[in-house]
Every structure is written in structure tokens, then in C-alpha cells.
Lab assay of single mutants.
Amino acid sequence: MFYPNSPQTSPQLTQIPYGQQYAMMQRQIQQPYHPFATTEPQARLYPYHYQGPIQQEQGGFITQQSTAASPQYVQMRVTPVDQSIMSGYPNQTANGSSSSSFNYNIHPQQQQQQQQQQQQLRHHAMPVGSVPLQDDRYRKQLIVNYLAPDVTSTDLHELFSRFGELDGARIIYDKQTNMSKGYGFVYFCHAEDAKEAVERMSGYEFHGKWLKVGYSTNPLNIVPSNSSPYVHAGSRGAAG
């Protein structure tokens, strides 16, 4: 039997160049792979992502010199942007860049009308829970959420009447099932009393439920100042 490094198959040491006398086997001759043993700084910083320098080929596509990437890492192929796409944008300079302001050559009167329309939209648009300043009635009506099913309009009136005089209180019921929808409205005579009720009743436990109280901004629920107070009856038909 002959071994790869046996004296019968191995040459004389004098015939082997210096430095390879003890590297006779194939696994010894093959050098191990060192990912950080390279002179390129990109490979030292990113050993798993770097795959060699990027070269520009004919046709405008950018390719990489090395083989496919590892399945664990996804390499994105980048193509140059066609400058003709950006030619339609206004205020574009000769080098292809555009300024931040756009001039669509709008007539001054049209621009003024658009600004007025935007101001009107901001004036009428009102986020949930906010209180408008032009109508004091919005500051007097509250919406009470997360009410228990057994709470009546009379219970709601008695709960909030300790903060001040009320114009009314009612629970909203479903017309088909005649069941409470879980929320109601309270109408105060003074805005200061309503503000105190919002601050003190939010998070209050009532009939096993934690109440959420806020201003009601729905104009359909506003009680006119010259109208008669609501009837605080315990029956659902009268309260709904």
C-alpha cells in the first residue's frame, strides 16, 4: 500500500523548493479562506456584503464582478436614472436638479381664491374633541361614552347635575331594538360647569363602566337656548 506522503511516492527534499517541504498533501497545500485577509477597505468593513468592485458596462447597466450573493443577503441591482424623465418638472436647472418651490404660472386672482378656499376649509374642519370658538353652545354640550346598558337618562342627569344647572341629558337608544347604544349627551347651562365635568368625570366608574367624557361637536345635538329642557323620564321611549 502506498500513501500520498510515503517515501516511495514523495520526491527528495532537495528537489522541493524551500517553504513547501512540509506541504505535501493536497489539504495542506490548499490555503484556508480568510474573509478579512484583503487589501480593499470595503471588504474589511463589510465582509458579507462586499463582492468586489463595481464596473460600468456598455448599455448603462451596473453589474458586479463577483458571483451571486448568499441567500441570506439580498443584493440590489441599481440602474442609472434617465434624465429625460425629470425634464417635465418646473424650475429645473441645466444640471438636472430642481428647486423646492414650484411655479405653475397661476393667475394671481386664482391663487388668492385657492388660498381663501383653504382658509375656509381649515375654519370649518374641526378635529374630534375640539371646541370651536365662534359658538358658545359647543362648550356646553358633552358626550358621555361607555355607558352601561342599564343607565337611563334620569341617572345621567343626576350624575352630572352636581356640577351645575343642566339644560338636559339623554341616552341614545336603538330604534329597532330599543336598547341603549352605550353613549349619551349632557347639556349644561354654563360653559364653566361643562369644563369642570369634563375634567372630573373622564375615567369615572359608573355602573361598572369607566366613562369617557368630552365635548360634543355635532351641531345636530345642540340644544337651542330658547327651547324647553328635555324630559328626564326613566322610560326608554321618552328618553330616546
Rank of each mutant, 00 (worst) to 15 (best):
R137W: 04
S10A: 10
A239Y: 15
Y183V: 00
I16G: 11
G203Y: 10
M201R: 01
G237D: 05
Q118V: 12
S130A: 05
Q176M: 07
Y138L: 03
E192W: 15
D193H: 03
Y204A: 13
I85A: 09
K212V: 07
S6V: 09
Y33C: 14
N218P: 01
H34C: 05
Y73R: 15
T154C: 14
L45E: 15
T152W: 02
G237N: 09
D174V: 03
R122Y: 07
S99T: 11
Y183I: 00
F163Q: 01
T154W: 03
D167W: 06
E205R: 13
Q55G: 09
L211W: 00
N145T: 02
R139K: 09
A125C: 04
L147C: 15
R77A: 06
L166C: 02
A125R: 10
Y183L: 01
A238G: 04
N145M: 02
Y104E: 04
S87E: 03
M76F: 10
P7K: 14
G168H: 00
I29K: 13
H107P: 09
P90G: 12
Q64I: 03
Q12T: 07
Q28A: 05
G164C: 01
T14I: 02
S66Y: 11
Q114M: 12
L13I: 10
Q42K: 14
L133C: 09
G208R: 15
H34E: 15
L13A: 12
G237K: 07
G234K: 09
E57Q: 10
I106W: 10
E40W: 04
P127I: 04
L133V: 12
L45H: 15
P224F: 09
Y3I: 08
T14C: 08
Q120L: 09
R137H: 04
Y146L: 01
Y146S: 01
Q134S: 06
N218K: 02
R77D: 03
N221M: 14
Y173S: 07
Q72N: 14
Y187H: 01
H190C: 06
S6C: 06
Y48N: 15
P11D: 04
M126H: 06
D155S: 13
H232D: 03
V213D: 02
T9G: 06
Q8F: 05
V78Y: 09
N226S: 07
A238P: 08
R27E: 03
A194H: 00
E199Q: 14
L121F: 12
Y18A: 06
R162I: 15
A94L: 09
Q109C: 11
Q110S: 10
Q116F: 11
P7Q: 12
Q58W: 15
Q28D: 04
S153D: 11
K181I: 02
Q119W: 14
Q51V: 04
K209A: 02
D82E: 10
I222V: 03
V213Y: 00
Y104S: 04
S225Q: 06
S180V: 01
T79G: 07
P224W: 03
Q58T: 09
A197M: 00
T177E: 02
H157C: 10
S130H: 14
P224T: 05
L156H: 01
Y3W: 05
G214S: 13
H49A: 11
N105P: 07
Y46F: 08
P35A: 11
A43M: 05
T93F: 07
Q112K: 12
Q117E: 06
N178M: 13
I106F: 10
Y215V: 02
L220N: 02
V74W: 15
Q111S: 06
Q92W: 03
Y146V: 01
G184H: 01
T177C: 06
D82R: 15
Q109I: 12
P53I: 04
I143R: 01
Q75T: 06
S227Y: 13
L220I: 12
T93R: 12
P127C: 09
A37D: 11
K212W: 01
V128K: 14
M24D: 09
D155F: 05
K175L: 04
E40Q: 06
R170E: 00
Q111L: 09
E199N: 14
Y46W: 11
F188L: 01
Q83N: 10
N221F: 14
P224G: 04
I172S: 01
Y73H: 14
A191I: 06
T79V: 03
I171Q: 01
E199G: 15
V231R: 08
Y173Q: 12
V151Q: 01
Q30N: 04
D136A: 06
F102I: 13
S70D: 05
V198I: 10
Q72P: 12
A94V: 11
Q12R: 14
L133H: 15
S70W: 03
V213L: 10
Y173K: 09
Q119C: 14
Q56V: 04
P219I: 01
A23G: 10
G164Q: 00
F160L: 02
Q56W: 03
L133T: 08
I62D: 15
A148E: 02
Q26C: 07
A68L: 06
R137Q: 03
N103Q: 07
L133Y: 10
S98T: 08
I29N: 13
A125T: 12
F61V: 12
P53W: 03
Y48L: 10
Q72R: 14
S235Y: 14
F36C: 12
H49V: 04
N91Y: 06
Y33N: 15
